[in-house]
Nucleic acid binder design. Structure first.
Lengths: 316, 316
DNA sequence: ACCCCGTCTGCTCATATGAGCAATCTGCCC
DNA sequence: GGGCAGATTGCTCATATGAGCAGACGGGGT
């Protein structure tokens, strides 16, 4: 009867879920008591024969979120569903949307939000609704894009987020990476820059994304590094960058000399922050995500299902 | 609020289906009354955001079956689910299994079952359980495979089905297609053959499959026709063959001269039968399936979801 | 400003479902 | 064949859910 039972549970499931019959009705159809039907149904669910999916761009995966929180000690985890997604493009958009949602629902509302810049952050800024918060000041936490043609993206991101929250944006008027250490020290001690760094250090929340360590990095795109230099960093163990700083799989700085010349808040400041939100999505960023979460660089992670599962070591 | 409502229904669905919360609990989490939650959930289902799939090789698609019955006037339709299926191979096996299940559950139990032969029917015979019926005689309804190396497949199929039902198998001792019309007439009037044909004509149920019209047909494989001859039939409008006879999309005989030389029951006999079960699966057979169902050649169709949807004209 | 009509809300009540328990059955060892 | 342990069954009772309805609400039209 072992086989019969499984088959019956499938028949029952068809009638229950596809034909919306009551367990009672199914009972009389299959010549079973309604309790047996209930048990068959429970068994079918337990055996995983019944798959329930929520098909919507804004759908999240709460069970995965909980497992992530439990496994990593994150204060919070937001995982967007990746069912029915075409490419990384759409996945990143969904993740950015989720980050925007998370920010909007955040309580207490941060007074000052420190942000990095990049494609992802820009995406988040676009997904935020006008009036998402009743007054939040935004401050950049690392040097901006100013060398390349897309100049202004970083500034626009900060300005948009602040504007939509009826707050002020403070930009960090400096390159991300300086060529000479002396220049970096000089610019760092400039009153205008120092003030921003100070404000950044005192932000009540941080929001940043991460770049993968390859020639597609925004830092390469912006002209701060050459593809060769990044290749060298990868050889030294770099898995990606956050706020302009390259880290290895343990979340440690890969190249101290380069890091010295990088302007913006220190990783330690992020690690000490009580609220640091990392927004990371796409299969290319699984490694950075692992490094960030593993080394306590964020307290909240917003990501996609695939990345989350990679962090959890799920197969499939 | 239109957008908010949809988002809320998704949040509610996550909590309900992924976290097994009660609508009440969800209500207090989302700050809604439990009735609102119920409505949101109903709305999410209605909008198709909640997809419930039964993942099991023996799972059927009852709603599709009903639509098929309603749209075509079939007495019954059995549609196996094609979720998570690798190739046609697996689909055909599932369909054969379903046909075996259907035969087993059939009431009243037919006294004599007329069957054709082929890969599909053989598959069905293997899926039947020993003792599937308390006595059913089996009779072949068209000429058998005897020209090629796989000789005996047809005989084995009939014998297996009969044996497992504690009944007798009657084989049709004749080729499927004769080269000359006179030979056909001669063999047809032979006592041994005529008796079988008579028994076949009086069967209480028929079970047969169909072949697609191309060089992979079992008739080509068995050496009754050459690939060229089949190509010619296709040019004349053939979409496939059943019981050795090639039909066009209207279920009409394509080549009367060839058909005259084909030995076995007439299509009209199938059309008049009160129980004619066609077992058809695989994307290559959508066209034949349409011809068979459309021209009333079967009263019961056992098929896969894709074929069923093709018959119904569903997109997706 | 007023009213009307259609929609939405929160309710009552009937029904469906799940938890837990005692009775029964089944296989298994002696 | 007897008796025992664990599984399985059918039940009672508490709970969750869905149908249907009366009142509140909203947004045009006059």
């Amino acid at each position: 009867m072992i086989d019969t039972d499984e088959l019956m549970s499938i028949r029952a499931a068809e009638l229950y879920y596809e034909e919306n019959k009551t367990q009672d009705e199914i009972g009389s159809i299959l010549r079973l008591t309604r309790w047996k039907v209930g048990r068959l149904l429970a068994q079918a669910k337990a055996s995983g024969f019944i798959r329930i999916e929520i098909v919507h761009p804004r759908a999240r995966r709460l069970p995965v979120e909980r497992r992530l929180r439990e496994a990593t000690g994150l204060k919070d985890a937001i995982v967007v569903s990746s069912v029915g997604v075409a490419g990384d493009e759409e996945l990143q958009s969904r993740t950015a949307q989720a980050a925007a949602d998370y920010l909007t629902g955040l309580r207490p509302i941060p007074r000052t939000l420190g942000i990095s810049w990049g494609r992802t952050l820009h995406d988040v800024s676009l997904h935020l609704k006008h009036g998402w918060a009743p007054g939040v000041d935004v401050v950049q936490i690392n040097g901006g894009v100013s060398l390349n043609k897309r100049a202004g993206t970083a500034a626009t991101t900060a300005a948009t987020i602040a504007h939509k929250a009826f707050g002020a944006a403070t930009l960090l008027p400096s390159p991300a990476i300086l060529e000479r250490l002396e220049t970096k020290h000089a610019i760092e001690s400039d009153r205008a820059v120092a003030a921003v760094l100070e404000q950044a250090a005192g932000a009540s929340a941080y929001l940043y994304s991460a770049g993968q360590a390859d020639e597609h990095s925004a830092l390469v795109d912006s002209g701060y590094l050459s593809a060769d230099e990044v290749g060298e960093l990868v050889r030294k163990g770099a898995v990606g960058d956050i706020v302009g700083r390259y880290i290895d799989k343990n979340g440690a700085i890969v190249d101290p000399e380069l890091d010295e010349r990088t302007l913006g808040i220190q990783l330690e400041q992020l690690r000490r922050a009580s609220l640091a939100i990392a927004v990371i999505s796409g299969s290319a960023k699984h490694a950075v995500a692992r490094a960030i979460v593993g080394s306590g660089l964020c307290t909240v992670l917003v990501t996609d299902e695939d990345t989350a599962r990679a962090l959890l070591g799920d197969d499939v």
